[in-house]
Amino acid sequence: MKILATLQNNDIAPRFDLATEVLIAKVVRGKISGEPRTVLLPGPGSDALCSLIIKEEVSLVICGGIEEAHFQYLVWKKIEVIDRVIGPAPRAIELAIAKQLRPGGIVRTESTRRAQT
């Protein structure tokens, strides 16, 4: 299984169509296999990003806002989409692997959670 997260710096990009890089993690038996890789896109654009997702055989996409047409296209292609996510991409991927990430989720790091308690 592969998980793709749209990036802006180290966080989930606020909009799918404006992402210029993505983080791709391969998951084997519930754990990340190897080092996740960052892929720089030639520019922002939903169509190019959808093509990359198909080419890479991604199973799950984590993103911020996404247009309904692209959301439906990915779902039609049997790709799970968790959208409207805010926070650091590596932690979002960890939560997705643990089945704890939901659409609209606000992801916090361990240090952020400790500071709030």
Rank of each mutant, 00 (worst) to 15 (best):
A48G: 14
V81M: 09
D83L: 10
N10P: 01
A19Q: 07
L41K: 12
E94Q: 14
G105Q: 07
P88E: 12
A69E: 14
E67H: 14
S59P: 03
L18H: 14
L101N: 01
P44C: 10
R108M: 13
R108P: 13
S46H: 03
G34T: 05
R91F: 15
R114C: 02
E68N: 11
H70Q: 15
D17S: 04
I106F: 05
L23C: 07
A89R: 01
E80T: 06
I93C: 06
I3P: 11
V75R: 07
Y73T: 09
L41E: 13
S51E: 15
R91Y: 14
R91T: 13
G65H: 09
S51T: 12
E56Y: 00
E35K: 15
D47G: 07
R102M: 08
K2D: 01
R91W: 14
I3Q: 11
G105V: 06
S51D: 14
E68L: 07
F71D: 09
Q100V: 08
I106V: 10
G43D: 15
T38I: 10
G30Y: 13
G34D: 10
S51G: 15
L49T: 00
L40P: 06
I66Y: 15
T112I: 13
I66N: 12
R37S: 11
Q116C: 11
R29G: 09
V28N: 04
K26V: 06
Y73K: 15
A92Y: 02
I66K: 07
G104L: 00
M1A: 10
C63Q: 02
A89E: 10
R15F: 14
V28Q: 06
E57Y: 00
I106N: 12
G105F: 05
E110S: 09
K2F: 05
Q8W: 12
A98D: 15
F16Q: 07
V28M: 02
V107D: 03
R114T: 01
Y73C: 04
R84M: 02
E94C: 13
I12K: 02
N9R: 11
D83E: 13
V75L: 00
F71R: 01
I3M: 12
I106D: 04
I62K: 08
V39N: 05
R15C: 14
K26C: 09
V75N: 01
A48F: 03
E56K: 06
V28T: 08
P103S: 12
L7M: 12
L40G: 08
A92H: 03
E80F: 02
G64H: 01
S46W: 04
I97R: 05
V39A: 03
A13I: 01
R91A: 12
L40W: 00
L52Y: 10
A5C: 10
